[in-house]
Every structure is written in C-alpha cells, then in structure tokens.
Amino acid sequence: MSIVSIFFLALAMSADAFAASIGKGAMLYRPRLFEALRTGLIFGVIEAITPLVGWSLGRVASDYVTAWDHWIAFSILAALGLRMVWSGVKSAPEATQKQNSHSFILLAMTAFATSIDAMSIGVSLAFLDVDIVPVAIAIGCVTFIMVTIGVMLGRMLGSASRRTVEILGGAILITIGCLILYQHLSAAG
C-alpha cells in the first residue's frame, strides 16, 4: 500500500470517531486541551489496536468476523446512541450542568464502537498481504488528531443546551451504526 492510500484509509477510519468526539466535546463544560488530548489518545489507541485484532482474526477466522462485524458495530453504536438520546430526553430542561470530563469506560466503549470498521479493514488486509503495523499506526495517529480537534470543535458548540447536544450526539451514533449496517447489507446484496 502506498503512503497516500494508507493516509486516506486512516482518514476514512477516523471519520466516525471525529463525529462522536464533537458530541463528546459539546457535552463537557469548557473542555481544556488536556481533556481533548486525553480523549484523542483513548480513541487513537483503540482505533490503532482494532485493525491489528482484525488482521489477526482475519488470519484465523475471517468468515466469522466479516459476517458479524457490522452487527456488532450497529448494536454497540445503537445502544450508546439510545442511551444518550434517552438521557437528553429525560433530563429537565433547566439542567445545564455539564461534566468536566467523561469516564474512561464511556470513552473506551464509544471508541471501540466507532472502530469496528477498522477491525474489518484489518481482516481485509490480512488477505492482501499488507504490513498491518504501519497501517494501524497511521489509523491511530490520524484518529488521535481528528478526535482532539473534534472535542475542541465541540467546545465551540458548548453553548447549545445539554439536552439538544445529547440527543444530537445519540442520533449521530445511531446514524453511524445504521450506515455501517446499510453499507454491509447493500454490499452483500
């Protein structure tokens, strides 16, 4: 794979993490650069690990992973999205208290959910005899940068109400999950 191909692949793999990070940043009370870097690091590391896992699984059991990866991504993204929407709907309109940071577990779950597609890319690359390490590093680095920017961009949207941001962020995650499912089902049919 050429460097240009690897870069565009990494950019594509980080797009959904970028969208999720905008929502994460908007839900925080004036996130500082440190929080954006922390979030970027968590997403970047997980996004770099998943193609390695996918590549390893591709070497062992590609049919199983390829057949179910879209359902796993859809389920996790839909569950997280529905949780965010429900939280936004049930919170009182006057409750505008924002958090200073997100828990590691919540960030890791969101990062994993948005990185399932990178795992399936890893499976695909296992059959193309591609050196997976530079690809995984590129995906992790680009995701780190994009998520860090996304959190800070979400900060600018911080003036929007928490309810609206939570509902919008949840809708974005659900939409990403549906798009992943649609892409896989339309490619199969």
Rank of each mutant, 00 (worst) to 15 (best):
residue 99 Q to Y: 00
residue 52 L to H: 04
residue 78 A to N: 01
residue 53 V to F: 07
residue 119 M to K: 07
residue 126 A to W: 01
residue 104 F to C: 06
residue 94 E to I: 03
residue 66 T to E: 14
residue 45 V to Y: 09
residue 70 H to K: 10
residue 108 A to D: 00
residue 106 L to A: 12
residue 107 L to H: 00
residue 130 V to N: 04
residue 125 L to N: 11
residue 91 S to T: 14
residue 110 T to M: 00
residue 105 I to T: 10
residue 91 S to D: 07
residue 90 K to N: 12
residue 145 I to C: 13
residue 121 I to W: 03
residue 66 T to I: 13
residue 139 I to T: 13
residue 124 S to F: 13
residue 77 L to R: 15
residue 103 S to P: 02
residue 135 V to Y: 02
residue 132 I to M: 12
residue 136 A to G: 04
residue 83 R to V: 06
residue 118 A to I: 07
residue 87 S to Y: 04
residue 138 A to P: 01
residue 76 I to P: 02
residue 83 R to A: 12
residue 132 I to K: 09
residue 44 G to T: 12
residue 71 W to F: 11
residue 84 M to I: 06
residue 59 R to A: 11
residue 73 A to Q: 09
residue 111 A to Y: 00
residue 130 V to C: 07
residue 122 G to W: 09
residue 150 G to E: 08
residue 94 E to G: 13
residue 32 R to I: 10
residue 46 I to E: 03
residue 58 G to A: 03
residue 112 F to G: 01
residue 80 L to Y: 02
residue 33 L to T: 14
residue 37 L to F: 10
residue 149 I to R: 04
residue 144 F to V: 09
residue 82 L to H: 03
residue 53 V to P: 00
residue 57 L to I: 15
residue 50 T to K: 03
residue 65 V to G: 08
residue 106 L to G: 06
residue 132 I to P: 10
residue 119 M to D: 07
residue 33 L to Y: 03
residue 84 M to H: 08
residue 104 F to I: 08
residue 133 V to T: 10
residue 100 N to Y: 02
residue 70 H to C: 08
residue 61 A to E: 08
residue 140 G to L: 05
residue 105 I to N: 01
residue 75 S to A: 15
residue 43 F to T: 14
residue 58 G to N: 07
residue 88 G to N: 10
residue 46 I to F: 11
residue 128 L to K: 15
residue 84 M to Y: 08
residue 52 L to W: 02
residue 34 F to Q: 10
residue 40 G to W: 07
residue 102 H to W: 12
residue 55 W to Y: 15
residue 143 T to G: 05
residue 50 T to A: 09
residue 48 A to R: 10
residue 69 D to S: 14
residue 115 S to K: 07
residue 70 H to T: 10
residue 47 E to V: 05
residue 62 S to V: 05
residue 97 Q to D: 13
residue 80 L to G: 06
residue 98 K to D: 02
residue 133 V to R: 06
residue 98 K to E: 01
residue 106 L to V: 09
residue 39 T to M: 07
residue 68 W to S: 06
residue 114 T to D: 10
residue 98 K to F: 02
residue 138 A to N: 08
residue 127 F to Q: 15
residue 143 T to H: 04
residue 95 A to D: 15
residue 40 G to Q: 06
residue 39 T to A: 09
residue 125 L to I: 06
residue 134 P to L: 12
residue 49 I to N: 02
residue 67 A to P: 00
